[in-house]
């Protein structure tokens, strides 16, 4: 109730002023005060009617990109249209936010929208969460001409998007090289791991060509690492993602997200850098196969929609073709 009254706060203030002036005018019999009261009444009438009328004539639509990456900048498109034959002023698209999306800036102020015209506005945002993003409604407010009374109208929107996990090419490369382990120091046998695909890694031996040195890994490991091609390119790799909620500690969603990002980065590297096919499977979801970069988008959609599953979902252990396993459980053996 108080909030509803607060929306009319300035109008009530104006009415109180007019009432006070009326009292004085009737007592002092001042003609000019009646003139002032007339102006105040007209102002009040226009302040109520104009914003409401303006908003009735306006429509708003929004579109989000079909796919976007969690944490990376993306652009939404807002289209506001003035369907009337009168130009509208001082419209404000406000509170542009929905679960998982925060726009910056989160409001748009349109000084003037000509009659029978539309205006397309780009709004930047970075998805804060992975999965399905829905922009179901947005509000447009108008306080024209003077903001004495502000009308607000909510518009239902149909803008949806999918936010997939962040894909880091560098991390994918490192993961491929370390057999799916993100931190090479965590595994004492790290330098013994065989690269499954184009080359293997070993410690530097005097006489090795400088061209063979893997400089990035050398920098991370703190000692010279060289790569040695064995000539055998890998055509297909399996990635297993553990999405059994029972394996995650309470509140382990962020851990799961991190694993997904690693899996996505790895898959991206395998598909785009090494030209391999990838089968992504999960413990509690049907898998997906990516044969070529053309079908990479399907993998992203799969990665965007996969969730932690609990309950009586038929669990699948990582199969024998799972070259890389992403699980919160401690691995007994480095795969690859």
């Amino acid at each position: 109730m108080i909030e509803r009254l607060a929306a009319f706060g300035r109008l009530i203030f104006l009415a109180l002023w007019a009432g006070l002036l009326f009292l004085i005018a009737t007592n002092i019999q001042s003609g000019w005060l009646y003139v002032v009261i007339s102006f105040m009444l007209i102002l009040a009438a226009v302040s109520v009617a104009a914003p409401k009328s303006a908003l009735r004539a306006v429509s708003l639509e929004a579109a989000l990109p079909d796919l976007c990456e969690r944490g990376s900048p993306a652009t939404a498109v807002l289209t506001i249209r003035n369907n009337s034959r009168i130009s509208r002023h001082m419209l404000r698209i406000e509170s542009l936010s929905c679960p998982g999306i925060k726009f910056e800036p989160d409001r748009v102020f349109i000084v003037s929208l000509p009659a029978r015209s539309s205006l397309t506005v780009s709004a930047k945002f970075a998805p804060e969460s992975r999965g399905r993003l829905k922009m179901e409604r947005a509000a447009v407010s108008c306080g024209a001409p003077l903001g004495i009374f502000t009308a607000r109208r909510e518009f239902p929107l149909r803008a949806v998007s999918l936010a997939h996990p962040r894909v880091d090419r560098a991390e994918g490369e490192a993961l491929a090289e370390y057999g799916g382990r993100a931190d090479p120091r965590a595994n004492p046998a790290r330098f013994e791991l065989r690269d499954s695909y184009n080359y293997r890694l070993r410690e530097y031996v005097p006489g090795d060509s400088l061209r063979q040195i893997h400089w990035k890994l050398t920098a991370r490991a703190g000692e010279p690492i060289v790569k040695q091609n064995d000539g055998a390119a890998v055509e297909h790799a399996g990635i297993f993602i553990d999405n059994d909620a029972a394996n995650y500690p309470p509140g382990g969603g962020e851990r799961f997200e991190r694993l997904l990002e690693q899996a996505a980065s790895l898959a991206y590297h395998l598909v785009f850098a090494r030209g391999a096919g990838v089968s992504i499977t999960a413990s509690a979801a049907p898998g997906i196969t990516v044969d070529s970069p053309d079908s990479w988008e399907r993998a992203l959609r799969w990665l965007a929609l996969i969730e932690l599953q609990s309950g009586n979902y038929p669990l699948q252990p990582p199969g024998p073709d799972a070259d890389f396993t992403f699980s919160p459980l401690e691995r007994t053996e480095a795969s690859g």
């Binding site: 800036p105 102020f109 000084v111 407010s141 003077l146 004495i148």
Partner: peptide, 17 residues
């Protein structure tokens, strides 16, 4: 008042026009 309203409502917003 018009400038006041403009300043107040366009604050922290993307201004178009």
């Amino acid at each position: 008042l018009a400038i006041f309203h403009y300043r107040e409502t366009s604050e922290r917003a993307l201004i178009i026009g």
